[in-house]
């Protein structure tokens, strides 16, 4: 296990590369998903308001 984690002495480079990639891709997916949810709710609210008007 320790040998695997050491990546033949390149641990800091390999794991930083994988960690940064995972963090950035997760951040983009989560924030896209969150904005989608927020706009979904706003569209629903606008639709409900319009129904209330007529």
């Amino acid at each position: 296990m320790a040998e695997f984690l050491s990546m033949g002495g390149y641990a800091s480079f390999v794991w930083t590369a994988y960690g940064t990639s995972a963090a950035a891709l997760v951040w983009l997916a989560v924030s896209s998903r969150k904005q989608l949810k927020e706009t979904n709710e706003a569209v629903e609210a606008a639709r409900a308001r319009r129904r209330g008007d007529s």
């Binding site: 891709l25 983009l28 997916a29 896209s32 998903r33 904005q35 989608l36 706009t39 979904n40 706003a42 569209v43 606008a46 319009r50």
Partner: peptide, 23 residues
């Protein structure tokens, strides 16, 4: 595949934004 998923989410989100701007 990651691109496909996030791109479709963002497309839907942009469509929502456009709808809200028109409204």
């Amino acid at each position: 595949a990651y691109f496909a998923v996030v791109f479709l989410w963002r497309m839907k989100l942009e469509i929502n934004r456009r709808k809200l701007a028109v409204a």
